[in-house]
Nucleic acid binder design. Structure first.
Lengths: 233, 233
DNA sequence: TAGTGGTCTAGACCACTTT
DNA sequence: AAGTGGTCTAGACCACTAC
């Protein structure tokens, strides 16, 4: 036991975690109350509270008023994925980033998009197609529909130099989003863009964003074949 | 302003977040110190601290001793993915779960696996192939290699009823893991298992797990075509 | 209604980092 | 050396919920 003189919440957190891992407190069992643990560790209850709160966030225990703190049966592991700009991802690989605008046009809302975003069919939409390259190899294909009413400035934005994603992040950096990952196979058009053969499997990420309940944009980002998302926990 | 009588850390957190979103405090700027904010909100510094700590965790601000709290330039959005058992995922969809063991054999470490896990080539490995069904439709194909030396009990485990994933989670619920998502296209063998045509794009999740630095298992889980991962933030 | 976690306070000291 | 966040304490009251 190497308890420091002043007990830290990290010490309590790690010791409790150790007892859970070594089954001193088996799955499903109830831990001592905060007050009891504070007494055992000879620290303030707030310290124990912070330790247990972190363990609850990380999915090791479940806490309920009155009934106490229980060890979770099947710890719900959650992976955190960083979702950054294509530019960021490319530069993180120490590759040279290049951006190219492919298409830009303004029209009214296509039906499928209207129902996706909850927009009337006469809403004006900016439609953009662009590519992101890493060392001049195709990295990501991006197709995006932007609700002009929500962000009027986008109509006059220069998207030749800055990707719509990046522009939006600067104009309206904070928003709610819903994301979908799926696997698709390249149609001939996408295959051409990505420099691959038709049918190649690729990861596609669809993101719908809102701000204050108002729909901002729907984006479909397709990564080059072989692209993987990695994470640890 | 609808400040409650007793200021909560949630109130401070949301108000600070609002000021960041509305650019009262623009990107890159320095926020007032905790003491100043505590004065403004008429609450204890600990309350402000907790509020700002949460905003830092969520990627809105960056904090450094002495230099203060700054608004992040490009907020690093991170999505959280729940990674649960196939059974859990199926039952969450209100579908009926069924599990089937397909293959189970013991051998020595294949070369590729040895280098993946860092195991000697004479290490004994349990190799398992199994399927998970939702309402009798293929949901996930699982192929797994388990390091017997690390978990000797697995050799005698009954995997006819319980999937190796679930068995391992009960036997050794806490481990470190590395995860990779990628898109693959079905070869004829996988296509048969998944009831689809060869070439169909599918999401594949590979997970390597360790416990205390010792490799436990490598798993490759392939989802049925059309399977999507959804999340919000 | 009683027990448990959830939170706030006021004050103190510590630790890191910039000057 | 000084300023800012990081944390601990002791005590208090609140809020949810199982009984």
């Amino acid at each position: 036991m190497n308890a420091p003189k002043r007990i830290s919440f990290q010490y309590v957190r790690d010791e409790v975690k150790r007892r859970i891992e070594t089954r001193v407190w088996p799955q499903g069992s109830v831990l001592p109350t905060e007050t009891q643990l504070a007494e055992e560790f000879n620290c303030a209850r707030a310290t124990v509270n912070r330790a247990l709160r972190e363990l609850a966030e990380q999915g090791f225990v479940e806490r309920k008023r009155k009934s106490g703190t229980r060890v979770k049966k099947s710890p719900s592991k959650q992976a955190k994925l960083e979702l950054s700009l294509a530019r960021q991802m490319v530069e993180d690989q120490n590759a040279t980033y290049r951006y190219a605008l492919v298409e830009r046009d303004i029209g009214v809302t296509p039906r499928w998009l209207g129902s996706q975003l909850g927009l009337p069919s006469d809403a004006r939409i900016l439609h953009v197609v662009c590519m992101h390259y890493a060392d001049n190899r195709p990295f990501q294909h991006e197709e995006r529909w932007i609700n002009i009413a929500a962000i009027p400035e986008i109509e006059f934005a220069d998207l030749e130099e800055t990707s719509p994603h990046e522009w939006l992040l600067n104009a309206a950096p904070f928003s709610e989003a819903e994301i979908t990952f799926c696997a698709v196979s390249a149609d001939s058009r996408l295959a051409d863009y990505m420099g691959t053969t038709s049918g190649a499997p690729m990861i596609q990420l669809e993101r719908t964003t809102w701000r204050g309940g108002q729909p901002l944009s729907f984006a479909r980002m397709t990564h080059h074949p072989g692209y993987c998302i990695r994470t640890r926990y």
